[in-house]
């Protein structure tokens, strides 16, 4: 089963994080890679994003962040695991769980074209 692990960061908590966080992240990445997960993808801060929506022929463009919330989506990992329990285990190991929320979502399999 494919899972997406979404990282949501609280800017205030992250700003106060010790420098060891990035070492913890390197270890987490290595452990995940060893277990067959992909390396993560980090995004530029939500404030540097844009958004678009089209309704009744009108196109609206916004400058980020898409959502005004305390925690902002910051990046993700993909993992192939037997069940959501294992996914939650990995989320609990993820250093970002201490500086925001780590969410796991099962992927909807689509057949290759």
């Amino acid at each position: 089963m494919q899972f997406m692990m979404l990282i949501h960061h609280d800017d205030d908590l992250l700003a106060a994080a010790p420098p060891s966080l990035w070492g913890d992240y390197a270890a987490f990445n290595q452990a995940l890679a060893k277990a067959g997960g992909t390396s993560g993808l980090r995004l530029e801060h939500a404030s540097k994003g844009r958004a678009v929506t089209q309704r009744n022929g009108t196109t609206e463009l916004f400058d980020g962040p898409y959502m005004e919330s305390k925690e902002q989506f910051a990046g993700y990992f993909m993992m192939d695991l037997p069940d959501i329990e294992q996914a939650v285990q990995w989320a609990a190991r993820c250093p970002s769980a201490q500086y925001g929320t780590v969410e796991v979502r099962p992927i909807w399999p689509t057949r290759p074209q």
Partner: peptide, 21 residues
């Protein structure tokens, strides 16, 4: 070094993580 690093990445307990680090 490699094994310690992976063990750190797999730890969910902060005290144990610090010990391994």
């Amino acid at each position: 070094l490699e094994a310690f690093n992976i063990a750190v990445g797999l730890s969910t307990d902060e005290a144990e993580r610090r010990y391994l680090i």
